[in-house]
Lab assay of single mutants.
Amino acid sequence: LVRYRTISKIPQITLNFVDLKGDPFLASPTSDREIIAPKIKERTHNVTEKVTQVLSLGADVLPEYKLQAPRIHRWTILHYSPFKAVWDWLILLLVIYTAVFTPYSAAFLLKETEEGPPATECGYACQPLAVVDLIVDIMFIVDILINFRTTYVNANEEVVSHPGRIAVHYFKGWFLIDMVAAIPFDLLIFGSGSEELIGLLKTARLLRLVRVARKLDRYSEYGAAVLFLLMCTFALIAHWLACIWYAIGNMEQPHMDSRIGWLHNLGDQIGKPYNSSGLGGPSIKDKYVTALYFTFSSLTSVGFGNVSPNTNSEKIFSICVMLIGSLMYASIFGNVSAIIQRLYSGTARYHTQMLRVREFIRFHQIPNPLRQRLEEYFQHAWSYTNGIDMNAVLKGFPECLQADICLHLNRSLLQHCKPFRGATKGCLRALAMKFKTTHAPPGDTLVHAGDLLTALYFISRGSIEILRGDVVVAILGKNDIFGEPLNLYARPGKSNGDVRALTYCDLHKIHR
């Protein structure tokens, strides 16, 4: 019993810090008490220290592992850092350059016999395009090294910054494609005289377009951006097909006994025919423009016929181009109408809503002055909100995010209106959640004399007048207030005048 009563005193000691020596009952000389009392004092002292730490809000209350900052290894790049964003855009520009100039170089340097010394005699450094290609190869190699040090988000939505895990993730992902696209074939085969082989191998750079397509997928929600990307894709495919079309004609031209190829026909049409040795002929500019003209006309199913396939190889390629053109029509131009419709969806919704308003007016036989006010209010409210119901949009977000959005939407009023000066951010967040926005066209009466005042109004834009009878008592403008002081009276009061809008007004109100 003594032991039980001794232990039962522990909660009292913990909360009230009572010393055991003052209790005459606990001072009985028993061996059990002498053993338990020192333990009680020690526990009391420890609990006292913990309570003191909690009340003082000291940093040592938290466990040590929670006080440590997340460790980022040296030379690790955050995937959302500004440097990584700028670097990704730079790589994107280099990939676009590669997609345009690599097929052009591979096709127009394929057994090209233009006048001038061969590239091997001039030297590697004197070729501007080769120098640019070398810079692109170096940048792609540097990009691989950067990807080995860039964080990523795993399946659990955690940012991984450990170098080993980053390397394994990159090896399992895009490393092989990036490595093949970054191989400097110019340096590996330079001086061997195989410019045709170098041009063909350099087309491996186009593998990076797969990554670019995935990154550009984030802009699919913007109709104008999608339309622009589709047109660029169409032009890029036409450019690639033009390079292939020229390569076919250029390879067949020296081996044909009869002059029936499209390059021969082009030379005869523009007065620059090929001679018996295969030299001469149109310039590279004429060849490229004509090839691009043929691919565009074939892809769009126009086909004027002034550039036509004559050999079997050219006919087979033309059939493939027609098939590609039909697929592009289905996948690209078939979506253009939907994209344009999405661009004008706001206008369509406006006309639909206006039609419903006019049908309501016609069905209920609203008189002319009231009908005009109804239409003007709808037009003004639509121009202010673009038909978007803010309350319906915010309803799907958590309250903390709703408060931040409301604070942002009402920031101008909260910053410049005098009653809100000096208020804490928590108070402003709470008030912003209570605001209701209303609009009024010129001549609209917001409050009639004798109406119950259940709200306090803040003028965000425009001006109003307060009338008693036919006498203008006051004219209020931006950041002015009218209405009933909230919670100042037990019952809502009545208006002693009319409140009429002089201009288009936007008002925020808080109800009782």
Rank of each mutant, 00 (worst) to 15 (best):
I135C: 04
A242I: 01
A432I: 08
Q269F: 01
M433Y: 03
A119K: 15
Q341D: 09
N275C: 01
P441G: 09
S192T: 08
W382Q: 05
A432Q: 01
Y329G: 04
I91A: 01
P273A: 01
L134W: 04
L446R: 03
P82H: 07
I244P: 01
K272F: 01
Y65N: 05
A338T: 04
R218P: 03
K272T: 01
I237S: 04
T233N: 01
Q269A: 11
R218K: 11
A99I: 01
A430C: 04
N156Q: 13
F435I: 10
G223A: 08
A348E: 08
I177K: 01
N312Q: 01
F378S: 06
I135E: 01
R208A: 06
A291N: 01
A125S: 14
L176E: 01
A182F: 04
R421N: 07
R373I: 01
R165N: 05
L230F: 12
F190R: 14
A213H: 04
A99Q: 01
V447E: 03
Y219L: 13
L227Y: 03
G305C: 11
Y97H: 01
V180K: 01
R71T: 10
S283P: 01
P398V: 02
R259S: 15
A392C: 04
G346I: 05
Q127F: 11
W240Y: 01
D88N: 01
A440S: 13
P70A: 07
R356G: 08
I189M: 12
L394P: 02
R362Y: 01
N391I: 07
F397E: 01
M251R: 04
I183A: 10
D286Y: 01
K425A: 09
T98N: 14
L134I: 08
K436I: 13
Y274D: 03
L216A: 09
Q341W: 06
S276N: 04
A403I: 01
F190L: 11
F175R: 01
K272W: 01
R165H: 05
L188F: 13
G305Q: 03
A242G: 01
W89T: 03
W174G: 04
H380T: 09
A99N: 01
C406Y: 08
F228S: 09
C243I: 01
L110E: 15
I166P: 01
I146D: 01
N335H: 12
V302D: 01
D444R: 07
E112P: 14
A430D: 04
P184R: 05
E314F: 01
K395Y: 09
Q365C: 06
V321I: 15
L414F: 14
A204S: 05
A69K: 14
V357Q: 03
Y97P: 01
C243H: 01
W87D: 04
E221A: 05
D143A: 01
